[in-house]
């Protein structure tokens, strides 16, 4: 009986060894023929990974500024707070987030990622909802009113130079310029109408003062 059991085990072990050899042989063949392709696909799949940091819990992010090059040395991550916007004349203060998607501007002011940052000497674009905590009172701003951006790398003061009502399709009015620093803030308009709003209220402000963090 024991002999028979040992014999059966022997056969199974032999079969397992052959199967293992077959498996290894097949793996070697696959690796030699399409190993590179498989590796490439795996890298691609692993690249389809998005960190979702947007939301009320987004932590404020420290970013540094290269004052020689007049450029940020490190950029904020998508959906994180990197500054605070303060407009004393309309008593508004809100966090500025990186990005201006609807998901982001639900929580605060959205910074259009394709625009520049305070101190870089070009156009900075901020967008927000016309809600009471954000840009509802933007149409009350007058020329000469101060707008302050408190970034982790410095404080930038702007002065309102112009206001405009545009169509939501008018992107020319929000064009990015690199020859002067200008802060553009916009929100949906008219504020007191219910339903879809196809106009935008735009405020333009020029840089009048800057203080860099040492």
């Amino acid at each position: 009986m024991l002999k028979k059991i040992i014999q059966i085990f022997g056969v199974i072990a032999k079969q397992l060894a052959v199967a293992f050899f077959f498996a290894c042989f097949l793996i070697v063949i696959i690796n030699l023929t399409c190993g590179n392709k498989i590796q490439r696909y795996i890298s691609l799949i692993n690249m389809i990974t998005v960190m979702d940091k947007t939301g009320e819990d987004s932590e404020s992010q420290e970013i540094s500024f290269d004052s020689v090059k007049k450029k940020l040395a490190s950029y904020p991550s998508w959906g994180t707070i990197w500054a605070t916007l303060n407009i004393p004349s309309i008593n508004m203060e809100a966090p500025v987030y990186q990005g201006d998607t609807l998901d982001i501007i639900k929580y605060g002011i959205g910074h259009y990622a394709g625009s520049y940052y305070p101190g870089e000497g070009s156009t900075i674009i901020f967008a927000a909802h016309n809600s009471s905590q954000h840009f509802m009172r933007l149409p009350q701003l007058k020329i000469g009113d101060k707008v302050i951006v408190y970034a982790s790398y410095g404080t930038y003061t702007y002065e309102v130079t112009n206001t405009k009502i545009i169509k939501d399709t008018d992107t020319d009015s929000l064009a990015i310029q690199t020859d002067k620093e200008e802060l553009i803030m916009y929100t949906c308009y008219p504020v007191n109408v219910v339903g879809h709003k196809d106009k935008r209220y735009v405020v333009y402000a020029k840089l009048v003062g800057e203080e860099h963090e040492s």
Binding site: L102, N130, S131, C188, V193, V194, G195, K197
Partner: peptide, 8 residues
């Protein structure tokens, strides 16, 4: 997201 801007 659309409610905030709609005034509703």
């Amino acid at each position: 997201n659309y409610i905030i801007q709609s005034g509703l």
